[in-house]
């Protein structure tokens, strides 16, 4: 079996009496989309934040790309190849689409400390950026300011920025949130193609998307993983049906 890209072991995080993450161990293998589902307040975002390095777990370990990254800060994890998108789109609002993607390229491959060369006249950077923009389906919008984009376009911009990081892992926090049915199915197609590039840890509420995309699913309830398995296994799991899917039925 191939080595997992990402492994968490016994992660725990409490806020006061509330255990937001309770003994979570999961892994992500090359080429797969691993979906993380669960009701609101199950601790999905808290878990993503710990993996991304935005909050520190109380105990447990996180391994990524062969090293222990439990104590590394968020920027270092990003430089190791972790690309993340946010539940609420997070981009530099005054920048154009092109600037945002170039920023992402620069951050991953060059660092901030270039003081002289005009970054937007560097063809290597802009050409690469345009490719990622095209792949995310935003061609023609390069010079638009991010703040003027529609909600769906901003989602795509985030994907383009993540692509520009040439990641070893995508952490996607509810990428479908706020998209209409049409937008969601378009984005599903886009994400489907990403898994060849790097595995995806996908937090998502849109069950159609999850069932269409996921190779494996983990179900998080009250901070605990109550089940992990293939789509079919999860659909058939009685505990999951009562705890979570049952609410939908």
């Amino acid at each position: 079996m191939t080595e997992p890209i990402l492994t968490t072991r016994s992660l725990r995080k409490s806020f006061g009496a509330l255990a937001a993450t309770d003994d979570v161990s999961l892994d992500l293998r090359p080429g797969e989309i691993h979906a993380l589902i669960g009701p609101n307040g199950a601790g999905k975002s808290t878990l993503i934040k710990q993996i991304a390095g935005e909050i520190a777990p109380d105990s447990g370990t996180i391994h990524f790309a062969g090293q222990d990254i439990t104590t590394k800060h968020a920027a270092a994890r990003a430089r190791l190849g972790m690309a993340r998108t946010y539940q609420i789109s997070s981009v530099a609002p005054d920048f154009t689409v092109l600037q945002n993607v170039v920023l992402s390229l620069v951050a991953r491959h060059h660092g901030a400390f270039g003081l002289f060369r005009n970054v937007l006249k560097d063809r290597r950077l802009t050409d690469a950026a345009r490719e990622h923009i095209a792949r995310a389906g935003l061609s023609g919008r390069e010079r638009q300011r991010a703040t003027d984009l529609s909600h769906g376009e901003r989602r795509r911009l985030e994907i383009a920025m993540a692509l520009a990081q040439s990641p070893k892992l995508f952490l996607l926090d509810e990428p479908m949130a706020g998209l209409g049915t049409e937008g969601a199915s378009e984005l599903t197609g886009l994400l489907d193609g990403l898994r060849q590039q790097a595995p995806i840890l996908l937090v998502e509420h849109d069950m159609d998307a999850v069932f269409a995309l996921a190779d494996r699913i983990s179900v998080l309830v009250y901070g605990r993983v109550i089940a992990t398995g293939t789509v079919a296994e999860i659909r058939a799991n009685a505990e999951v049906r009562t705890a979570y899917l049952g609410e939908d039925a």
Binding site: A75, A76, A92, L103, V106
Partner: peptide, 28 residues
Amino acid sequence: HRLHRARFGLSLEAARQNPERLRSLGIR
């Protein structure tokens, strides 16, 4: 002018607009 247009200026302006995002892209 040069700093503004260079990688550094891009990162600095990003730090003003959205520091969390800059961090998650790999720049502190």
